[in-house]
């Protein structure tokens, strides 16, 4: 475990906690896409199937449980908690996210390292994570309104992805056999989506305008 990886994980955890805090204390999920949250729940559920079969460390198992628990809690809050559900932007959050799920599943069946059940689902979770933020970005563009907490949530998520890339560069130079093309390319695509968003976020902030 290097410092980039740890910082990335912590940033990731804070991003989820910020979102849960917003939903739990303000009882509002305005500006948050439930589609993106459902995609993350699927990502974690399919990636962490190995939680029962391979033990890495207490840290790893603990963090996996945190991400599984938090992503499913957020979806539950947004779909079934009455007060929170009332604040959900249903008319604007119309991204057809099941197409993403289907495309990523097909891609995972075609491009993977090993054709086993766990490996294909693990690869599927990488593909899906890369594009899971799309419904959230589309929702932000539609409502053209971004509150501080939602902005911080996306900012922390972007930071987490950036730190993971530094972690891979570090591991590539310090560990033998650390070559993982699928992980790297999907990670890069995901980070570029955030970078693109922040570019426009920064421009609109600089011009003191709403997001365009």
């Amino acid at each position: 475990m290097n410092i980039f990886r740890l910082a990335g994980d912590m940033t990731h955890m804070f991003s989820v906690l910020v979102l849960l805090l917003k939903i739990h204390t303000i009882k509002s999920c305005a500006g948050v896409s439930v589609k993106t949250q459902e995609l993350y729940a699927i990502v974690f559920a399919t990636r962490y199937l190995d939680i029962f079969t391979s033990f890495v460390s207490i840290y790893n198992t603990f963090m996996k449980l945190v991400f599984l628990g938090s992503s499913f809690s957020i979806v539950w809050y947004m779909r079934y908690h009455k007060a929170v559900h009332r604040t959900y932007d249903r008319e604007q959050d119309t991204f057809r996210h099941w197409f993403l799920v289907l495309s990523c599943l097909l891609l995972a069946l075609l491009i993977h390292e090993k054709f086993t059940f766990l490996e294909v689902l693990w690869t599927f979770s990488l593909y899906l994570e890369a594009v899971a933020i799309l419904p959230q970005l589309v929702l932000l563009q539609r409502t053209r309104n971004i509150d501080n907490l939602t902005g911080q949530y996306i900012f922390l998520l972007g930071g987490y992805r950036g730190l993971y890339i530094l972690n891979w560069i570090y591991r590539y130079f310090t560990e033998p056999h650390f070559v993982h093309w699928i992980t790297w390319i999907t990670g890069l695509v995901q980070t570029l989506l955030y970078a693109d968003f922040f570019y426009y976020y920064f421009l609109s902030w600089k011009n003191n305008k709403k997001l365009n």
Binding site: R5, D9, H12, D50, S54, V56, S57, N60, M63, K64, F67, W122, Y164, N167, R171, E175, P176, H177, F178, V179, H180, T183
Partner: peptide, 10 residues
């Protein structure tokens, strides 16, 4: 997981 295995990540 062995050295260089990306599956020890989250």
């Amino acid at each position: 997981p062995k050295d260089g295995d990306v599956k020890d990540e989250l």
